[in-house]
Structure formats: structure tokens, C-alpha cells
Design a protein around this nucleic acid. Sequence first.
DNA 1: CGCCTGGTTGAGAATCATCAACATCTGTGG
DNA 2: CCACAGATGTTGATGATTCTCAACCAGGCG
Lengths: 248, 248
Amino acid sequence: MGTRRAESTLDNIVCTHDFRINCSDCRLNSICLPIALEAHDIDRLDNIIQRSKPLRKGEHVYRESEPFTSVFAVRSGSVKAYKITGDGKEQITGFYFPGELLGVDGIAYYRHSVSAKALETAAVCEIPFKRLEELSTTLPSLQRHFFKLMSQEITQDQQLITLLSKNSAEQRIASLLLSISARSARLKLSATSFRLPMSRTDIGNYLGLTVETVSRIFSRLQKAGLLDVENKEIRMLEIDKVRKMAGI
Amino acid sequence: MGTRRAESTLDNIVCTHDFRINCSDCRLNSICLPIALEAHDIDRLDNIIQRSKPLRKGEHVYRESEPFTSVFAVRSGSVKAYKITGDGKEQITGFYFPGELLGVDGIAYYRHSVSAKALETAAVCEIPFKRLEELSTTLPSLQRHFFKLMSQEITQDQQLITLLSKNSAEQRIASLLLSISARSARLKLSATSFRLPMSRTDIGNYLGLTVETVSRIFSRLQKAGLLDVENKEIRMLEIDKVRKMAGI
DNA sequence: CGCCTGGTTGAGAATCATCAACATCTGTGG
DNA sequence: CCACAGATGTTGATGATTCTCAACCAGGCG
């Protein structure tokens, strides 16, 4: 009951105290921004990146409608992006894990179109966009990589659109679990055992479901023997069946 | 019964026969790609743009998983983007009207992640991406404009996500109508009277609803006096009530 | 300890999907 | 120009999924 499975949490993959580590040494650099760069170009990028202090749970990386000045890479922990709709409701548009880039939504209008806040203790790298833009003009591979990241954001959003438009509650949950599983694996962590950093309410919000439905489906999947759910700790016992359920 | 309201169709705003018109003379240039450019820079962009022959209804601009080489600007008519999901279903991810850019989804993996086909007779400008990229490095305002367009795509997708996640069938339809109304207005056409280029099935697919539900809601809005629906011709009689219904 | 937030479970209600029948529109060939 | 066929759209009856409301439980923190 009281035991924690801390070894599987996503927020421990880099030491959060040593936030001065630079891009060349960062163990995330194979999935983060500089993937396409040569060593000496990484240093040039490294010079413009600002490493911020760890954020505590609930603290904002940036807020909707704030002037857009930077994009951010998650170093540890996790972040949710959300916007407040016309009628005051929250809509979560994405969850971001270590190595993932957030904030590109702000480029269009020089303002952030969503807010981003830490789901747990988290650290982010801040990359001033103006300087990134300047650097891009002299480093074509950086420009290309940056285009690629924005395009990935589009592809992801479109996947979510499909999920919301066509799939049942069960399929949505299964897909989210598989997505988090894949990201956990990308970080060299377990693909079958991980901790959900977000609340059930957040999951429901993101997937267009109510908390109750989310809760019921977790229970159902557990009863069916596909999952072992213990609060936020998830163990996927039958990942193939989960895949099938998600429609893959 | 037999009378057409052809004056309001979106596909007539430029002469589809004269597809050799260049960017400087194009009446869409204030909303299309070169918005941020000086006259002599527009010429440089103009040189790399290829104008294609008009597409007939159902013809593809590009197909999912084809190698990505170009982005496209709609000159006349309209286009839908869609992808085929794992289990063989179609999911429409967007509708594109004159002056709008499509194809940026392909940048990430050098392949198109969706297919795009003409909803009616349509003409598009093809912009080879490689040359656009090269030109971008010497024209910062073009690079910035291009970032902006990709970012807009993200913002739009996120709006659709919110729509699908939080809103009722009635609200989704109302929102789509308002979106098309706004785009019609941007093309200097009527904001209250326009022709829907897509089928009811397409609308349902895009909004995550069945055809029947779409049809019923059109009927309901007509009975309530908010709309005048005559097949694909829409007249918005009470646009403020539609706005309220959409939650704006 | 008790409060408060977050999560679970149940019963009933609402929305939307499904199935089915029918109407209308489009375009093709006579 | 008409007739027909297939596609597209409308309407109704029924049913399933998910939401809403409500009660209850568990864990974390002052």
C-alpha cells in the first residue's frame, strides 16, 4: 500500500539538481532539438539556451496570451499544455515529457496560444526564439530540424483529432497508455511499467471524457487483466491486447 | 427549386482559366504566403512557384505517404485533407479555401501524413519546399511568415481538438458554419450566405458525427429560424444566435 | 484528527449512433 | 429533354455509450 515504485517515474531520468548540464552532455540530446547538428554546432546552440530552475508542481512555464519569446524543452518531469475556452473551461492539448519541445504554438501571433504548467517537479530549457531564428539562417540543418518539430506537433494534434472523432472511450484510454508507454521506452525506461504524472481529471479532459468514465475504464481494464492499476502507477500486463483495443 | 445562388460560391473568386497569374497580381496575395514580403521579394518567390492546371472534383493534390516535395496554396475551389486510419476509416483533418496553405504536415518525415483532394474544381499553386527553404534563409520575413503559417495550422488543429472534446453536436456544427462564414468574408464574399463545398458525410466525418446527426441538426437550426438551408447553400439568418450557440 | 482534494462506484438521464425506409439530387445515356 | 441508377440526404424508431448527479472512499497535509 504505502510502497512507491519510484524507479519507474519519468521525473528521475536526469538529476534535477544539476541543471547546468549542457546540450552535448545531456542524455536527452538524441531526442531533443539538436539531433541533426554536428558537435561544434551544438555548442553554438548551447550558448543561447537558458537553463531554468526546476519548476514545482503547478508552476507555469508560460501562460496563454503572454508574449512569445522562447520555446522550451522538457529536461525532467512533465508538463501539460492547456487553453481556457471562450466559456471558461479548460482544454488540455498535450502532455510533454523529457526531451520534448513545447511552445511552438506561440510563433504565429507572437503570443502563446496555450498555457503550460508543470504536472510535477520539472525542469525545462528555455530557447529564445529570436536567437534560434538567427542561428537557423546560418545552420540549415537546425532550420530543418525546427520545421520538423513543428510538423510533428501538427501530426500529433491530428492523431488526437482522429482519436476524439472516431474512437470510443476505451480506445482513447488505450491509445493514451500506449503513447505514454512509447515515450517511456524512448527514455530508456520500461515500456510496460510507468507512472502517470497527470490526474484522472486531466486524462478525461485531454481525451474528451469525464473523470467518472476514465475511472470506470481503468477499473474495467484491470478486471479484464490487461492492466495493473495502483493509483498513478500502471503496469501493462497484456500490451498486445491493449494495442488491439486501441485499434493498432 | 431549380435556381442556383452561384454568386456566392467560393470557387468563383478568381478566374479558374487564367492560372498563369503571378503572385503580385493575385487577388489572394494579402492572405497567402507572401503577405510579409516587399514587392521585389515577391518576385523571387513568384519565380519558384508552379501553377498547376485546375483539378477536377475528387482529384488529389497529394497522397498520404507520398514523398513530400512541395507545399500548396489554394487558388480557387476547395480541398479536403484526410488520412486513412489504422482500421481503414477516413478521418478528415481540415478543409482548405482559397488563399490557404496546405501540405506542411509533410515536413516532419519527408512524407505527407495526410492526403488532399479537391472537393470541387480547384486550382492550386505548388511551392517546392526545398527552394522555399533556400529562399527563406535569405529572406527572414519569409522564414518568419512560414513559421507563422505552420503555427497557425497547429492553432487550428487545437481548436478542432477542443471542439471535438468539449462541445455538443449542435455546437460543432455552429462552429464550423462560423468558420466557413469567416473565411468567406475574408475572401470579400458574404459572411452570411455561402455554399458548402463538402458533403454532409464529410462534415460529419470532420466533426466526429454521423451523417444523420448532421442532417438532423441542419433541419433543427432551420426550424429554429437560425439558418436557411437549401442543399449546400446556407444563409445565416441569425448569425448572433449561431455565435451564441457555438459558445462565443 | 479531520479536512480537502482526488478517485471510485452506482443509478438514471441525455445525447448521439445505428438501423431502416424513403426522398432527392446528379449525372449519364438514350 | 427525359429516364433511370447510384449517390447523397432526410427522417423516424430504437438502443448503446457516455454524462450527470450523488454517495462514498482513500490519501496527504495542516
